[in-house]
Amino acid sequence: MLATPAITLHDVHKRYGATHAVRGVSLQVEQGGVCGFLGPNGAGKSTTIRMIMSIILPDEGRIEVLGATALDAKDRIGYLPEERGLYRKMRVAEFLRFMAQLKGLDRTTADQRIGSWLERLELPGVSRKRCMELSKGMQQKVQLIASLVNEPALLILDEPFSGLDPVNARVLTREIRGLRERGTTILFSTHQMRTAEDLCDRVVLIHRGEKVLDESLASIHRRFDPRAVLAEPMSDPVQAGRAIAAMPGVATCAWSDEARALHIRLTENADARDAMQRMLQATPLRRVELRRTTLDEVFVRLVGGDESVLAAQEAAGD
């Protein structure tokens, strides 16, 4: 028997006056794994997440979360909104207990989990402090605990890395990985493509209210087949470059100071593996590697500023 999807969106629309914020988005997120919800500013990510959380209602379409409406499943969902806030005068433990009790936990269980999470997120001794006494990073951790204290089956994080210093970002990454291993479904939106690439099993890209990409990371790497190869010659780079440029299937070959290697772009029909073998035979190379397409490049390619220019570049094999 197939498990109930964690999130199902079917042809969801949301309008704010004349603005069509979300345009017929359909999506199914299976249970388990990490799904990145990407898109430029104003793409409709937060609106979609708010609809998934039943904070706002869609104008059209159907949304199911853990087999029910989000209102019915709220106790099994953890949510860290983009706009984070705390009751400034409340003490940390009191605030977290309040949130835990809203999620259906009894006081004893809540206190145990709060203590455990404060320790895990390296926040010792803050439970008696008022929220306003904490630094911004500490406040963000407290908010994260509020979303995790009910041990949710589905965790939705809206821009969780925004404003975090590298140390705290690493702590958060560690926790997201840990939660994934324990079977929690995680949907998170971010602008940081490298983070998404590190953490996500799957990526959904939304642009101008429409879904433009919905694939596993592996599939994205396959689909956006790399056309670039990096080769570090053992001998004279100019001579090696000439030899490679003359090979069939090579569109351009130029020295990259940044990579300290020859940057080779293949033609559309060339087989990358064959081309790399031929390069090794043609000239002695210290290393030759297929340059993986980054999510950043996919993002820019799909939603980048001037799409007509990008399309023209693609057509030219650039």
Partner: peptide, 17 residues
């Protein structure tokens, strides 16, 4: 206060309006 402290959306993740 709940609106200006931006705690409203946190609350709405746990309860309906």
């Amino acid at each position: 206060e709940e609106k200006s402290n931006r705690v409203m959306e946190v609350l709405l993740s746990a309860v309906s309006p």
